[in-house]
Nucleic acid binder design. Structure first.
Lengths: 207, 207
DNA sequence: AACGCGGCTGAACGATCGTTTAGCATTCTG
DNA sequence: CAGAATGCTAAACGATCGTTCAGCCGCGTT
């Protein structure tokens, strides 16, 4: 009785909220604007979700469920998530980006989940030899996930410089390919920057 | 008469606005809250900056000027910007992240500027042999800058998983080092993911 | 001493915010 | 067919928003 009729006004309100929240932020979006976008009265929004915070929470859970459904149940969210996120609807992208920046509870849980899954995935690769070794596996996993999510959070900037008007998958594919190239072959041919960084870091440590 | 006395109430208001805007977003921050944080009356805020939008613009210009001053005038903002941003004050980080996500005019100009500078920098490296070659230089520059900015925008999430409570430079250094390792030696030892991606991209093209 | 002027404030304006309440239709239940 | 329940709305509530306005205070000038 709940998931079957998902084309109702309640779902329309949620979708409209997702788009408006993503575009203008939660604080910058009024309940009246969401109601107008969904074609209902402002009172109905509160009737279905209790409050604006309740609506926001419903959006969180909806986006998370959509992303999690991309992975096969328990384990590797990684590979499926990559493709799923790149393919995800634009409103959900911006909403997710804003949620990650705001540090909402649900978004933080998702971030942790992705990092943990990625760290296991990289550890497996390290054992099997198709991933280089590192001294700080946690930092690598966190940084890798940050990089994975970066074009998603900064999608407006990326698509503006890369695709012109199009916010379509083709632009995302260009960025993803460029990223994979850097991860596969490396970007720098020698360790001049890495050693330079090590020097700077040591200086900062003594200071 | 303007830059000398930069410890005045006007500067305090701007700094308070930077912090509040970064923490709660522009729409989520009231002029009264900024005034209270700066220890002045709400009317003074409008007296100095004309309107809330004027205050926001002043924050944009201030952050941009602070970042641009990190580079040596014209050319390579890149190398200086990396160190400068990692060392930048936390309030400015979050403000910049939000501005990039909101796609504000000033932040978009900065992003373009960094990408252009980075692309030239990578092209030089490619000529001199310390950067690998690529078929899509623009996409690589955009992706590289996105990666550079990612821990900055997602600093809350990164520091939460990496440093615990500390949002200090040490955490940023761990992430930066992990990133440099991946860029120097590569992450994957073979091209299994790159070739897999190429296959997927072709499938998507025909579909 | 009188004056002008910029930094600054308290009080108030209209608008808009999230939320509540009362009530209208429609449908299901007995 | 009476009646409870559901989906939904119009109208209004108090609070808070950005902004305006009249005027106070301190200081340099004439």
């Amino acid at each position: 009785m709940r998931s079957v009729e998902d084309l109702t006004a309640r779902a329309r309100i949620r979708d409209a909220a997702l788009e408006r929240f993503g575009a203008d932020g939660v604080a910058g979006t009024s309940v009246r604007a969401i109601a107008a976008a969904a074609g209902v009265s402002p009172a109905l929004v509160l009737h279905h979700f209790g409050s604006k915070a309740g609506l926001r929470q419903a959006c969180d859970e909806h986006v998370l469920a959509a992303i999690r459904s991309g992975s096969g149940g328990d384990g590797v969210i990684e590979q499926g998530a990559l493709a799923e996120m790149l393919r995800a609807a634009t409103p959900a992208r911006r909403y997710l980006g804003r949620a990650l920046l705001d540090g909402s509870e649900a978004a933080s849980a998702l971030f942790t989940e992705i990092v943990d899954s990625t760290q296991r995935w990289l550890a497996d690769g390290e054992e099997q030899g198709w991933v280089t070794s590192t001294a700080d596996a946690r930092a690598r996993a966190v940084t890798y996930v940050s990089w994975l999510l970066a074009p998603l959070v900064l999608s407006d900037q990326v698509s503006r410089l890369l695709g012109g008007d199009v916010v379509e998958t083709e632009t995302s594919l260009r960025a993803a390919r460029a990223g994979l190239e850097m991860l596969t072959g490396g970007l720098f041919t020698d360790d001049r920057w890495l050693s330079a960084f090590t020097t700077i870091a040591k200086e900062g440590q003594t200071r």
